[in-house]
Design a protein around this nucleic acid. Structure first.
Lengths: 247, 247
DNA sequence: CAGTAGTGTTAACGGGGTTTACCGTAAACG
DNA sequence: CGTTTACGGTAAACCCCGTTAACACTACTG
Protein backbone atom coordinates (compact mmCIF):
# COMPACT_ATOMS: atom_id res chain seq x y z
CA UNK A 1 0.00 0.00 0.00
CA UNK A 2 3.00 2.35 -0.18
CA UNK A 3 1.62 3.84 -3.37
CA UNK A 4 2.39 7.41 -2.54
CA UNK A 5 3.66 10.13 -4.74
CA UNK A 6 7.37 10.63 -4.78
CA UNK A 7 7.05 13.81 -2.76
CA UNK A 8 5.04 12.07 -0.09
CA UNK A 9 7.63 9.34 0.25
CA UNK A 10 10.39 11.91 0.44
CA UNK A 11 8.52 13.79 3.09
CA UNK A 12 7.93 10.69 5.13
CA UNK A 13 11.61 9.80 4.88
CA UNK A 14 12.91 13.12 6.15
CA UNK A 15 10.28 13.06 8.88
CA UNK A 16 11.60 9.76 10.11
CA UNK A 17 15.14 11.05 9.76
CA UNK A 18 14.26 13.93 12.05
CA UNK A 19 13.06 11.57 14.74
CA UNK A 20 15.96 9.16 14.39
CA UNK A 21 18.45 12.02 14.40
CA UNK A 22 16.86 13.28 17.57
CA UNK A 23 17.26 9.89 19.15
CA UNK A 24 20.91 9.76 18.10
CA UNK A 25 21.43 13.14 19.66
CA UNK A 26 19.91 12.02 22.94
CA UNK A 27 21.84 8.76 22.88
CA UNK A 28 25.03 10.76 22.42
CA UNK A 29 24.20 12.65 25.60
CA UNK A 30 23.81 15.93 23.76
CA UNK A 31 21.09 18.46 24.20
CA UNK A 32 18.00 18.08 22.04
CA UNK A 33 17.63 21.33 20.13
CA UNK A 34 16.13 22.13 16.77
CA UNK A 35 19.37 23.66 15.60
CA UNK A 36 21.37 20.60 16.59
CA UNK A 37 18.96 18.25 14.87
CA UNK A 38 18.93 20.31 11.71
CA UNK A 39 22.71 20.66 11.68
CA UNK A 40 23.13 16.90 11.94
CA UNK A 41 20.88 16.50 8.94
CA UNK A 42 22.61 19.19 6.91
CA UNK A 43 19.68 21.53 7.20
CA UNK A 44 18.79 24.67 9.07
CA UNK A 45 16.46 24.87 12.02
CA UNK A 46 13.54 26.71 10.43
CA UNK A 47 13.18 23.94 7.88
CA UNK A 48 12.05 21.62 10.66
CA UNK A 49 8.92 23.71 10.99
CA UNK A 50 7.77 22.22 7.69
CA UNK A 51 7.45 18.93 9.55
CA UNK A 52 6.67 19.85 13.13
CA UNK A 53 4.48 22.54 14.61
CA UNK A 54 6.87 23.43 17.42
CA UNK A 55 9.57 22.10 19.67
CA UNK A 56 7.25 20.46 22.16
CA UNK A 57 5.52 18.49 19.46
CA UNK A 58 8.85 17.19 18.28
CA UNK A 59 9.74 16.14 21.80
CA UNK A 60 6.46 14.30 22.12
CA UNK A 61 7.02 12.48 18.86
CA UNK A 62 10.52 11.51 19.86
CA UNK A 63 9.26 10.32 23.23
CA UNK A 64 6.72 8.16 21.47
CA UNK A 65 9.38 6.57 19.28
CA UNK A 66 11.68 6.06 22.24
CA UNK A 67 8.90 4.29 24.08
CA UNK A 68 8.37 2.13 21.02
CA UNK A 69 12.03 1.20 20.76
CA UNK A 70 12.32 0.55 24.48
CA UNK A 71 9.36 -1.79 24.25
CA UNK A 72 11.33 -3.86 21.76
CA UNK A 73 13.97 -4.29 24.44
CA UNK A 74 11.38 -5.35 26.98
CA UNK A 75 9.92 -7.79 24.48
CA UNK A 76 13.32 -9.26 23.75
CA UNK A 77 13.86 -9.85 27.45
CA UNK A 78 10.45 -11.47 27.77
CA UNK A 79 11.01 -13.64 24.72
CA UNK A 80 13.98 -15.26 26.35
CA UNK A 81 11.37 -17.02 28.48
CA UNK A 82 8.86 -17.73 25.79
CA UNK A 83 6.18 -20.12 26.93
CA UNK A 84 6.41 -19.03 30.54
CA UNK A 85 4.40 -15.83 30.93
CA UNK A 86 5.33 -15.43 34.58
CA UNK A 87 9.03 -15.58 33.82
CA UNK A 88 8.50 -13.32 30.84
CA UNK A 89 6.85 -10.73 33.06
CA UNK A 90 9.72 -10.85 35.52
CA UNK A 91 12.28 -10.43 32.77
CA UNK A 92 10.34 -7.57 31.20
CA UNK A 93 10.10 -5.77 34.52
CA UNK A 94 13.82 -6.07 35.06
CA UNK A 95 14.44 -4.89 31.50
CA UNK A 96 12.25 -1.88 32.11
CA UNK A 97 14.24 -1.03 35.21
CA UNK A 98 17.57 -1.50 33.49
CA UNK A 99 16.57 0.59 30.50
CA UNK A 100 15.47 3.40 32.80
CA UNK A 101 18.70 3.40 34.72
CA UNK A 102 20.87 3.24 31.63
CA UNK A 103 18.88 5.92 29.81
CA UNK A 104 17.67 8.30 32.48
CA UNK A 105 17.13 11.18 30.06
CA UNK A 106 15.03 9.08 27.77
CA UNK A 107 13.18 7.64 30.75
CA UNK A 108 12.38 11.11 31.99
CA UNK A 109 11.20 12.15 28.57
CA UNK A 110 8.78 9.27 28.25
CA UNK A 111 7.68 8.54 31.80
CA UNK A 112 8.28 11.68 33.83
CA UNK A 113 6.89 14.36 31.58
CA UNK A 114 3.56 15.77 32.69
CA UNK A 115 1.09 14.42 30.17
CA UNK A 116 -1.45 17.04 31.09
CA UNK A 117 0.70 20.01 30.15
CA UNK A 118 1.48 19.18 26.55
CA UNK A 119 -1.84 19.92 25.06
CA UNK A 120 -3.33 17.29 22.80
CA UNK A 121 -0.66 15.39 20.91
CA UNK A 122 0.83 13.72 23.92
CA UNK A 123 -2.53 12.82 25.38
CA UNK A 124 -3.38 11.11 22.14
CA UNK A 125 -0.09 9.30 21.83
CA UNK A 126 -0.20 7.92 25.34
CA UNK A 127 -3.38 6.04 24.61
CA UNK A 128 -1.39 4.01 22.10
CA UNK A 129 1.76 3.70 24.18
CA UNK A 130 3.61 0.64 23.04
CA UNK A 131 5.10 -0.16 26.42
CA UNK A 132 1.75 -0.01 28.19
CA UNK A 133 0.14 -2.19 25.57
CA UNK A 134 2.98 -4.67 25.76
CA UNK A 135 2.84 -4.99 29.53
CA UNK A 136 -0.90 -5.44 29.46
CA UNK A 137 -0.55 -8.18 26.87
CA UNK A 138 2.04 -9.82 29.05
CA UNK A 139 -0.31 -9.92 32.00
CA UNK A 140 -3.12 -11.26 29.87
CA UNK A 141 -0.79 -14.02 28.71
CA UNK A 142 -0.08 -14.73 32.33
CA UNK A 143 -3.75 -14.83 33.21
CA UNK A 144 -4.53 -17.22 30.38
CA UNK A 145 -1.90 -19.60 31.66
CA UNK A 146 -2.34 -19.14 35.40
CA UNK A 147 -5.54 -17.34 36.35
CA UNK A 148 -4.85 -14.12 38.19
CA UNK A 149 -7.16 -13.48 41.13
CA UNK A 150 -9.18 -10.37 40.45
CA UNK A 151 -12.28 -8.68 41.77
CA UNK A 152 -15.61 -8.95 40.04
CA UNK A 153 -17.18 -5.78 38.73
CA UNK A 154 -19.13 -5.13 41.91
CA UNK A 155 -16.14 -5.88 44.10
CA UNK A 156 -14.17 -3.07 42.51
CA UNK A 157 -13.43 -0.03 44.66
CA UNK A 158 -15.80 2.83 43.87
CA UNK A 159 -14.54 4.89 40.98
CA UNK A 160 -12.67 2.08 39.29
CA UNK A 161 -15.51 0.55 37.33
CA UNK A 162 -15.59 3.23 34.64
CA UNK A 163 -11.87 2.91 34.06
CA UNK A 164 -12.05 -0.83 33.40
CA UNK A 165 -15.23 -0.62 31.35
CA UNK A 166 -13.88 2.09 29.07
CA UNK A 167 -10.12 2.14 29.61
CA UNK A 168 -8.02 4.96 28.18
CA UNK A 169 -4.91 2.83 28.13
CA UNK A 170 -4.12 0.57 25.22
CA UNK A 171 -5.19 -3.00 25.85
CA UNK A 172 -6.44 -5.87 23.72
CA UNK A 173 -10.06 -5.88 24.80
CA UNK A 174 -10.78 -8.90 22.62
CA UNK A 175 -8.85 -11.03 25.05
CA UNK A 176 -10.77 -9.70 28.03
CA UNK A 177 -14.28 -10.94 28.67
CA UNK A 178 -16.67 -8.66 30.45
CA UNK A 179 -16.24 -10.68 33.63
CA UNK A 180 -12.48 -10.34 33.37
CA UNK A 181 -12.44 -6.58 33.32
CA UNK A 182 -11.49 -6.63 36.98
CA UNK A 183 -8.10 -7.78 35.77
CA UNK A 184 -7.42 -4.29 34.50
CA UNK A 185 -7.54 -3.01 38.04
CA UNK A 186 -4.88 -5.54 38.97
CA UNK A 187 -2.86 -4.40 35.98
CA UNK A 188 -3.04 -0.77 36.99
CA UNK A 189 -1.95 -1.57 40.52
CA UNK A 190 0.96 -3.56 39.20
CA UNK A 191 1.90 -0.73 36.88
CA UNK A 192 1.73 1.75 39.74
CA UNK A 193 4.13 -0.32 41.83
CA UNK A 194 6.55 -0.95 38.97
CA UNK A 195 6.51 2.65 37.76
CA UNK A 196 6.92 3.93 41.28
CA UNK A 197 9.99 1.99 42.23
CA UNK A 198 11.73 2.41 38.90
CA UNK A 199 11.09 6.15 38.90
CA UNK A 200 12.32 6.37 42.46
CA UNK A 201 15.49 4.59 41.49
CA UNK A 202 16.10 6.47 38.26
CA UNK A 203 15.73 9.81 40.01
CA UNK A 204 17.83 8.57 42.87
CA UNK A 205 15.58 9.72 45.69
CA UNK A 206 16.69 6.91 47.94
CA UNK A 207 19.87 5.45 49.34
CA UNK A 208 22.05 4.68 46.30
CA UNK A 209 23.17 1.42 47.87
CA UNK A 210 19.59 0.16 47.69
CA UNK A 211 19.57 0.94 43.99
CA UNK A 212 22.90 -0.68 43.32
CA UNK A 213 21.91 -3.90 45.06
CA UNK A 214 18.44 -3.87 43.51
CA UNK A 215 16.95 -4.89 46.82
CA UNK A 216 14.16 -2.32 46.70
CA UNK A 217 13.16 -3.47 43.26
CA UNK A 218 13.19 -7.11 44.33
CA UNK A 219 11.07 -6.31 47.33
CA UNK A 220 8.53 -4.57 45.14
CA UNK A 221 8.40 -7.56 42.80
CA UNK A 222 7.99 -9.89 45.77
CA UNK A 223 5.02 -7.88 46.93
CA UNK A 224 3.44 -8.22 43.49
CA UNK A 225 3.56 -12.00 43.36
CA UNK A 226 0.58 -12.46 45.63
CA UNK A 227 -1.81 -10.19 43.74
CA UNK A 228 -0.61 -11.90 40.56
CA UNK A 229 -1.41 -15.33 41.97
CA UNK A 230 2.17 -16.50 41.75
CA UNK A 231 2.83 -17.32 45.39
CA UNK A 232 3.61 -20.97 44.65
CA UNK A 233 6.39 -19.99 42.29
CA UNK A 234 7.62 -17.12 44.46
CA UNK A 235 11.00 -18.55 45.31
CA UNK A 236 11.78 -19.62 41.78
CA UNK A 237 10.63 -16.36 40.22
CA UNK A 238 12.54 -14.21 42.68
CA UNK A 239 15.64 -16.21 41.89
CA UNK A 240 14.98 -15.50 38.24
CA UNK A 241 14.68 -11.80 38.99
CA UNK A 242 18.04 -12.01 40.73
CA UNK A 243 19.59 -13.59 37.67
CA UNK A 244 18.07 -11.04 35.34
CA UNK A 245 19.32 -8.22 37.53
CA UNK A 246 22.87 -9.54 37.24
CA UNK A 247 22.83 -10.10 33.51
CA UNK B 1 24.77 34.96 67.70
CA UNK B 2 23.85 37.18 64.73
CA UNK B 3 26.93 39.28 65.40
CA UNK B 4 27.95 39.66 61.83
CA UNK B 5 29.40 42.64 60.12
CA UNK B 6 26.97 44.85 58.34
CA UNK B 7 28.14 43.64 54.96
CA UNK B 8 27.61 40.01 55.93
CA UNK B 9 24.08 40.71 57.07
CA UNK B 10 23.35 42.59 53.89
CA UNK B 11 24.72 39.77 51.83
CA UNK B 12 22.66 37.20 53.69
CA UNK B 13 19.56 39.30 53.19
CA UNK B 14 19.87 39.61 49.43
CA UNK B 15 20.73 35.94 49.23
CA UNK B 16 17.48 35.07 50.91
CA UNK B 17 15.67 37.55 48.74
CA UNK B 18 16.99 35.75 45.67
CA UNK B 19 15.56 32.46 46.86
CA UNK B 20 12.24 33.90 47.94
CA UNK B 21 11.89 35.83 44.68
CA UNK B 22 12.52 32.60 42.82
CA UNK B 23 9.78 30.90 44.76
CA UNK B 24 7.40 33.77 44.00
CA UNK B 25 8.23 33.43 40.35
CA UNK B 26 7.48 29.73 40.36
CA UNK B 27 4.31 30.23 42.36
CA UNK B 28 3.17 32.77 39.76
CA UNK B 29 3.58 30.10 37.11
CA UNK B 30 6.35 31.99 35.39
CA UNK B 31 9.59 30.60 34.11
CA UNK B 32 12.52 30.54 36.48
CA UNK B 33 15.32 32.47 34.80
CA UNK B 34 18.18 34.49 36.16
CA UNK B 35 17.07 37.52 34.23
CA UNK B 36 13.53 37.28 35.57
CA UNK B 37 14.72 36.90 39.15
CA UNK B 38 17.09 39.83 38.84
CA UNK B 39 14.48 42.02 37.20
CA UNK B 40 12.03 41.36 40.02
CA UNK B 41 14.68 42.45 42.48
CA UNK B 42 15.63 45.53 40.51
CA UNK B 43 18.97 44.11 39.54
CA UNK B 44 20.61 42.70 36.47
CA UNK B 45 21.29 39.05 35.87
CA UNK B 46 25.08 39.03 36.13
CA UNK B 47 24.82 40.40 39.66
CA UNK B 48 23.34 37.08 40.75
CA UNK B 49 26.66 35.45 40.03
CA UNK B 50 28.00 37.22 43.11
CA UNK B 51 25.74 34.93 45.13
CA UNK B 52 25.42 31.77 43.11
CA UNK B 53 27.91 29.83 41.05
CA UNK B 54 25.51 29.07 38.22
CA UNK B 55 21.91 28.50 37.31
CA UNK B 56 21.78 24.88 38.41
CA UNK B 57 23.05 25.73 41.87
CA UNK B 58 20.31 28.30 42.23
CA UNK B 59 17.72 25.75 41.20
CA UNK B 60 19.05 23.32 43.77
CA UNK B 61 18.91 25.92 46.50
CA UNK B 62 15.37 26.87 45.56
CA UNK B 63 14.37 23.22 45.49
CA UNK B 64 15.74 22.82 48.98
CA UNK B 65 13.73 25.77 50.25
CA UNK B 66 10.61 24.55 48.52
CA UNK B 67 11.01 21.18 50.18
CA UNK B 68 11.37 22.96 53.49
CA UNK B 69 8.24 25.02 53.00
CA UNK B 70 6.25 22.03 51.77
CA UNK B 71 7.27 20.14 54.88
CA UNK B 72 5.59 22.85 56.92
CA UNK B 73 2.38 22.04 55.10
CA UNK B 74 2.76 18.34 55.81
CA UNK B 75 3.47 19.11 59.43
CA UNK B 76 0.39 21.30 59.69
CA UNK B 77 -1.74 18.46 58.33
CA UNK B 78 -0.19 16.02 60.79
CA UNK B 79 -0.66 18.40 63.69
CA UNK B 80 -4.37 18.40 63.18
CA UNK B 81 -4.19 14.90 64.64
CA UNK B 82 -1.70 15.57 67.36
CA UNK B 83 -1.43 12.71 69.80
CA UNK B 84 -2.37 10.11 67.22
CA UNK B 85 0.75 9.28 65.20
CA UNK B 86 -1.11 6.91 62.91
CA UNK B 87 -3.66 9.54 61.98
CA UNK B 88 -0.88 12.10 61.66
CA UNK B 89 0.93 9.89 59.19
CA UNK B 90 -2.21 9.43 57.12
CA UNK B 91 -2.86 13.16 57.04
CA UNK B 92 0.74 13.91 56.13
CA UNK B 93 0.66 11.42 53.29
CA UNK B 94 -2.48 12.97 51.91
CA UNK B 95 -0.97 16.44 52.30
CA UNK B 96 2.10 15.30 50.39
CA UNK B 97 -0.09 14.05 47.57
CA UNK B 98 -2.19 17.19 47.48
CA UNK B 99 0.82 19.46 47.47
CA UNK B 100 2.34 17.53 44.58
CA UNK B 101 -0.81 17.74 42.51
CA UNK B 102 -1.35 21.42 43.21
CA UNK B 103 2.28 22.33 42.58
CA UNK B 104 3.49 19.95 39.91
CA UNK B 105 6.37 22.18 38.84
CA UNK B 106 7.66 22.47 42.37
CA UNK B 107 7.13 18.77 42.88
CA UNK B 108 9.15 17.98 39.81
CA UNK B 109 11.89 20.31 40.93
CA UNK B 110 12.24 18.67 44.30
CA UNK B 111 11.32 15.05 43.74
CA UNK B 112 11.81 14.32 40.06
CA UNK B 113 15.18 15.89 39.39
CA UNK B 114 18.00 13.43 39.00
CA UNK B 115 20.06 13.84 42.15
CA UNK B 116 23.04 12.16 40.58
CA UNK B 117 23.40 14.68 37.75
CA UNK B 118 23.74 17.88 39.71
CA UNK B 119 27.18 17.33 41.01
CA UNK B 120 27.73 17.89 44.68
CA UNK B 121 25.41 20.53 46.06
CA UNK B 122 22.22 18.63 45.55
CA UNK B 123 23.68 15.42 46.91
CA UNK B 124 24.62 17.26 50.04
CA UNK B 125 21.31 18.99 50.43
CA UNK B 126 19.30 15.82 50.05
CA UNK B 127 20.91 14.32 53.10
CA UNK B 128 19.28 17.06 55.13
CA UNK B 129 15.98 17.05 53.27
CA UNK B 130 13.36 18.42 55.59
CA UNK B 131 10.53 16.34 54.19
CA UNK B 132 12.44 13.09 54.54
CA UNK B 133 13.43 13.92 58.07
CA UNK B 134 9.88 14.85 58.95
CA UNK B 135 8.39 11.66 57.59
CA UNK B 136 10.95 9.57 59.38
CA UNK B 137 10.16 11.34 62.63
CA UNK B 138 6.51 10.66 62.02
CA UNK B 139 7.09 6.95 61.69
CA UNK B 140 9.27 6.89 64.77
CA UNK B 141 6.45 8.58 66.64
CA UNK B 142 4.17 5.91 65.36
CA UNK B 143 6.52 3.16 66.41
CA UNK B 144 6.87 4.57 69.91
CA UNK B 145 3.10 4.52 70.28
CA UNK B 146 2.28 1.32 68.41
CA UNK B 147 5.30 -0.89 67.74
CA UNK B 148 5.88 -1.38 64.02
CA UNK B 149 6.84 -4.92 63.08
CA UNK B 150 10.31 -4.88 61.62
CA UNK B 151 13.06 -7.34 60.83
CA UNK B 152 16.05 -7.80 63.07
CA UNK B 153 19.45 -6.98 61.66
CA UNK B 154 20.08 -10.52 60.46
CA UNK B 155 16.62 -10.81 58.97
CA UNK B 156 17.27 -7.89 56.66
CA UNK B 157 17.58 -8.66 52.96
CA UNK B 158 21.21 -8.78 51.87
CA UNK B 159 22.50 -5.35 51.00
CA UNK B 160 20.19 -3.48 53.33
CA UNK B 161 22.22 -3.73 56.51
CA UNK B 162 24.74 -1.07 55.55
CA UNK B 163 22.01 1.39 54.67
CA UNK B 164 20.34 1.10 58.08
CA UNK B 165 23.61 1.07 60.01
CA UNK B 166 24.93 4.19 58.31
CA UNK B 167 21.94 5.82 56.63
CA UNK B 168 22.45 8.67 54.17
CA UNK B 169 18.98 10.00 54.75
CA UNK B 170 18.24 12.39 57.58
CA UNK B 171 16.85 10.61 60.61
CA UNK B 172 17.01 11.11 64.36
CA UNK B 173 19.30 8.25 65.25
CA UNK B 174 19.00 9.06 68.94
CA UNK B 175 15.48 7.72 68.89
CA UNK B 176 16.52 4.50 67.19
CA UNK B 177 18.23 1.82 69.23
CA UNK B 178 20.60 -0.51 67.49
CA UNK B 179 17.96 -3.24 67.56
CA UNK B 180 15.45 -0.89 65.99
CA UNK B 181 17.50 -0.13 62.93
CA UNK B 182 15.40 -2.60 60.99
CA UNK B 183 12.69 0.03 61.19
CA UNK B 184 14.57 2.10 58.67
CA UNK B 185 14.03 -0.62 56.10
CA UNK B 186 10.30 -0.39 56.74
CA UNK B 187 10.54 3.37 56.39
CA UNK B 188 12.30 3.14 53.06
CA UNK B 189 9.72 0.72 51.73
CA UNK B 190 6.94 2.99 52.85
CA UNK B 191 8.66 5.95 51.22
CA UNK B 192 9.08 4.00 47.99
CA UNK B 193 5.37 3.23 47.86
CA UNK B 194 4.29 6.76 48.72
CA UNK B 195 6.75 8.42 46.35
CA UNK B 196 5.84 6.02 43.58
CA UNK B 197 2.11 6.56 43.60
CA UNK B 198 2.29 10.32 44.08
CA UNK B 199 4.82 10.68 41.27
CA UNK B 200 2.69 8.49 39.06
CA UNK B 201 -0.30 10.70 39.74
CA UNK B 202 1.50 14.01 39.40
CA UNK B 203 2.93 13.03 36.05
CA UNK B 204 -0.39 11.58 35.01
CA UNK B 205 0.87 8.29 33.67
CA UNK B 206 -2.34 6.53 34.55
CA UNK B 207 -6.04 6.86 33.92
CA UNK B 208 -6.96 10.39 35.08
CA UNK B 209 -10.16 9.10 36.62
CA UNK B 210 -8.11 7.04 39.05
CA UNK B 211 -6.28 10.19 40.08
CA UNK B 212 -9.41 12.25 40.44
CA UNK B 213 -11.09 9.70 42.67
CA UNK B 214 -7.90 9.05 44.62
CA UNK B 215 -8.58 5.34 44.55
CA UNK B 216 -5.04 4.39 43.54
CA UNK B 217 -3.63 6.43 46.39
CA UNK B 218 -6.06 4.88 48.87
CA UNK B 219 -5.17 1.43 47.66
CA UNK B 220 -1.50 2.14 48.18
CA UNK B 221 -2.15 3.40 51.70
CA UNK B 222 -4.25 0.33 52.44
CA UNK B 223 -1.36 -1.87 51.40
CA UNK B 224 0.92 -0.01 53.80
CA UNK B 225 -1.19 -0.55 56.88
CA UNK B 226 -0.08 -4.14 57.37
CA UNK B 227 3.67 -3.47 57.25
CA UNK B 228 3.04 -0.55 59.60
CA UNK B 229 1.23 -2.79 62.06
CA UNK B 230 -2.03 -0.87 61.78
CA UNK B 231 -4.33 -3.63 60.59
CA UNK B 232 -6.63 -3.30 63.58
CA UNK B 233 -7.29 0.35 62.79
CA UNK B 234 -7.45 -0.20 59.04
CA UNK B 235 -11.09 0.70 58.55
CA UNK B 236 -10.92 3.78 60.71
CA UNK B 237 -7.68 5.05 59.18
CA UNK B 238 -8.85 4.51 55.62
CA UNK B 239 -11.97 6.48 56.45
CA UNK B 240 -9.71 9.21 57.73
CA UNK B 241 -7.75 9.16 54.50
CA UNK B 242 -11.01 9.54 52.63
CA UNK B 243 -11.88 12.59 54.70
CA UNK B 244 -8.49 14.12 54.22
CA UNK B 245 -8.70 13.58 50.49
CA UNK B 246 -11.96 15.52 50.37
CA UNK B 247 -10.83 18.42 52.47
C1' DC C 1 4.08 25.82 -20.68
C1' DA C 2 2.39 28.58 -16.78
C1' DG C 3 1.12 28.28 -12.26
C1' DT C 4 1.25 26.64 -7.76
C1' DA C 5 2.29 24.08 -3.73
C1' DG C 6 6.08 22.23 -1.28
C1' DT C 7 10.71 22.54 0.73
C1' DG C 8 14.45 24.75 1.73
C1' DT C 9 17.23 29.13 2.66
C1' DT C 10 18.80 33.67 5.11
C1' DA C 11 17.93 37.31 8.28
C1' DA C 12 16.09 38.73 12.24
C1' DC C 13 13.63 39.00 16.91
C1' DG C 14 13.33 38.13 21.71
C1' DG C 15 15.02 35.58 25.31
C1' DG C 16 18.10 32.34 27.74
C1' DG C 17 23.03 31.52 30.74
C1' DT C 18 27.42 33.26 31.17
C1' DT C 19 31.83 36.06 30.87
C1' DT C 20 34.42 40.18 30.68
C1' DA C 21 35.64 44.69 31.85
C1' DC C 22 34.56 48.43 34.38
C1' DC C 23 32.89 51.44 38.35
C1' DG C 24 31.37 53.24 42.67
C1' DT C 25 31.22 52.59 47.55
C1' DA C 26 31.68 50.56 51.96
C1' DA C 27 34.76 48.23 54.83
C1' DA C 28 39.57 47.57 56.46
C1' DC C 29 44.03 49.17 57.42
C1' DG C 30 48.30 51.94 58.51
C1' DC D 1 42.58 60.53 59.15
C1' DG D 2 43.59 59.21 54.37
C1' DT D 3 44.62 55.24 51.53
C1' DT D 4 43.81 50.86 49.98
C1' DT D 5 41.20 46.95 49.09
C1' DA D 6 37.41 44.06 48.36
C1' DC D 7 32.74 43.78 47.46
C1' DG D 8 28.45 44.35 44.83
C1' DG D 9 26.72 46.21 41.17
C1' DT D 10 26.57 47.70 35.99
C1' DA D 11 26.80 47.53 30.70
C1' DA D 12 28.24 45.13 26.78
C1' DA D 13 29.06 41.21 24.56
C1' DC D 14 29.06 36.07 23.26
C1' DC D 15 26.83 32.04 22.06
C1' DC D 16 23.05 29.29 22.62
C1' DC D 17 17.91 28.66 22.07
C1' DG D 18 12.79 28.61 19.68
C1' DT D 19 10.36 31.04 16.40
C1' DT D 20 8.81 34.08 12.52
C1' DA D 21 9.01 36.49 8.12
C1' DA D 22 10.47 37.06 3.55
C1' DC D 23 12.38 35.03 -0.12
C1' DA D 24 14.11 31.34 -3.62
C1' DC D 25 14.29 27.04 -5.86
C1' DT D 26 12.04 22.81 -7.33
C1' DA D 27 8.83 19.64 -8.59
C1' DC D 28 4.41 18.49 -9.32
C1' DT D 29 -0.24 19.98 -11.67
C1' DG D 30 -3.54 21.95 -14.91
Amino acid sequence: MPTATRRERQREATFEEIVSTSRDLLAAGEELSLRAIAARMGMTAPALYRYVANYQELVDLVAFEIDKAATDLFRAAADRHRGDPAASAMAAAVAFRRWGQENPREFGLVFANPVAESACLRRDLITISHSCRFMNDLLIDLHERHPIPHPTRDELPPGVLETVVDPVMPVDLDRLTDENRGLLWVFMRVWAALYGVVTLEVFGHIDPRLIESGVMFRDMIANLLTPLGLTERAEELLALVGEELNR
